[in-house]
Design a protein around this nucleic acid. Sequence first.
DNA 1: CCTTGTGCGGAGACAGCCTCCGCTTTTTTG
DNA 2: CAAAAAAGCGGAGGCTGTCTCCGCACAAGG
Lengths: 197, 197
Amino acid sequence: MSGKQQGRKPRADVQRNRAALLAAAQRHFLRDGVGASLEAVAKEAGVGPGTLYRHFPTREALLAAVLQTRSEELVARRADIAQLGDASERLRQWLRAMEEYFSAFSGLPEPLMAAARAQDPDNPLTLPCDDLITTTDEYLRAAQLAGHARPSVKGYDLFLAAISTAWISGTGATDEESLGRLRALIESGYREQDDEE
Amino acid sequence: MSGKQQGRKPRADVQRNRAALLAAAQRHFLRDGVGASLEAVAKEAGVGPGTLYRHFPTREALLAAVLQTRSEELVARRADIAQLGDASERLRQWLRAMEEYFSAFSGLPEPLMAAARAQDPDNPLTLPCDDLITTTDEYLRAAQLAGHARPSVKGYDLFLAAISTAWISGTGATDEESLGRLRALIESGYREQDDEE
DNA sequence: CCTTGTGCGGAGACAGCCTCCGCTTTTTTG
DNA sequence: CAAAAAAGCGGAGGCTGTCTCCGCACAAGG
């Protein structure tokens, strides 16, 4: 019942190509955003387009694979955040961490929202998204229990707030100061009124 | 010094083609979002691609021309809003009106932010954007004077909040209820704490 | 009706997405 | 270790979309 056991060892060139593709893709996504030319990625990795599409059938699949590393970083940061004593501060830090994750590549919020929308099990970005929302809800509930956040707010709301802030940040249209004010506005939006600090 | 006086009357077919292009473009932007195929627009308008690009050198130019109608609607709404007595309510209404304007076509926030970024005088979307930000600032200042809004907030912040809400709305990933909660979160973010209503 | 010149439109160059299939490379088998 | 079998490779090519250039047609004015 274990599904597929790897009957044969994976071929050497397969792993090599996959690694080369991921490295090239990361470079291109960083430089050109999530809309980078996949043809160019394949060329830089030294493989044909066919190979790229066999490894990663869609742009989203490639994106999800490249994002894997970042996801692990995020999990690591969760451990750091758990150390902090204040539930309010933990929530704030988590939201910042999530926003940075969304800002990994320019244009990333777009496909992420599309994945969150459809609940499409085929979309490889759906799972990471759901995970993020669930985690946000956990941090939020802790803050609510401590009386630091309005009860009417939902985890999904803060997910939306974080991803839209990342979207604005990714357009490159806004200086860091305005972004800071926007974050402050959101924070005072979910904080309980009689909250102390 | 009046620049160019129209030495010759505009040709009949020019006006006809322009109108046909605008109508076709509006339909396609509505259905397919701002990324709609310009080839298809030209075909539906019954003209060649060359004609389209002569009238509107860039996608943004076409977009700005189509948006002209909506901008006038927005100006009209400003008159309605001015009737309301409460500065706080006026600000709220204005933010909603602006958000609806941003939601005219799916994907519209993207080029709008790009225009707001560059202050590029060549980009035909820059002017409308600046106007919106200025107006937001006026409404906000009135609310601040009345003690209904935090003094630390700037008009540009609320512009960002509105456009990012419209962006989320345009992804189609989110139900109206979550959007309402997000708006409420933003509102309680800029409202003065000791504000009544 | 003719002249003028403005505007038309489609052919075509270019870029990116994605697929299909003959061939090479790797692995397995005798 | 050679030969068969399997697995993966890669590029040619179809498709869609953007944008330009230029010979030609047609509207405006005499």
